[in-house]
Amino acid sequence: MVDVAATSAPQAWLRARSRLLSQLPAAIALLPAAAAVVFVYIGALAWTVRLSFSSSKMLPVFDFVGLNQYQRLFGTERFVVSTWHILVFGILYIAGSLIIGFLLAVFIDQRVRLEGVFRTIFLYPYAMSFIVTGLVWQWFLNPELGLQKTVRDLGFPSFSFDWIVDQDKVVFTLVIAAIWQSAGLVMAILLAGLRGVDAELWKATRIDAIPTWRVYVSIILPILTPMLATVSILLAVAVAKLYDLVVAMTKGGPGLSSEVPAKFIMDNFFERSNVGLGAAAATILLISVASILAPWIYAEHIRPQRVRK
């Protein structure tokens, strides 16, 4: 017994050492990623959360004022309306992008001629910056010189489309511009899904005499569900990140009528010297994103693994 222990201990040590040596280059290669995770994805995130419990104004201070900043946050009209705007925007934008993207994918899937041309047209806005999108739509929707004026000159003097300067409707113009940019993305992803459907499945539906629209609704749509869920998550994350488009298109106006949380955070951090308040808003944003992601991660990654076991 003693002998065995005596010989096996150095052997184990040697094995561990050679294993370590063979993994060493890989470990070194992972250092940049590790640094990014430690300093940014964990460090900066924790720092922001910490600041949300402090009274920091222009510079960060590390006192502890409990939930004061959060209390203040939910008493701040700018933040409350921002939250409301982002909810309205989010629902309309996600629903609109999914519906238009799905329809485009289905229609393109009908073996149309010039398929490549159509796809290129529907997807090109996605290649551009939100800043470009915002500026174009800001100009196009300009009530004095843009679309409204043109339609009026065409002989519809009572035509009115001044949403971009209308406090109650400006959010809808953001929705339009954002759908214009993202519908092609949804189309491209769903089209890939449609093309992945087994050709024999389509043959089976023809033998069974199922009408085409019914095939899409009852058979294809359920097949695409996981894909739709993933796309919805992508769009939802884009909603939480919504900043550039607003800055370029409406600057949050008129008044506060198109303010959004991401912009509220940026303004408080870098312009209004309200670091504590900005950090609290950022933390709320983080919690919202996490609560959107959690069920999806569970459904897509954790549950399937359990089922497999």
Partner: peptide, 17 residues
């Protein structure tokens, strides 16, 4: 559908959901 044929495929082609 009007030919009075039933068909069985190699990949089964069941409606998955």
């Amino acid at each position: 559908r009007d030919r009075g044929v039933g068909m069985v495929f190699q990949s089964y082609s069941l409606y998955p959901r």
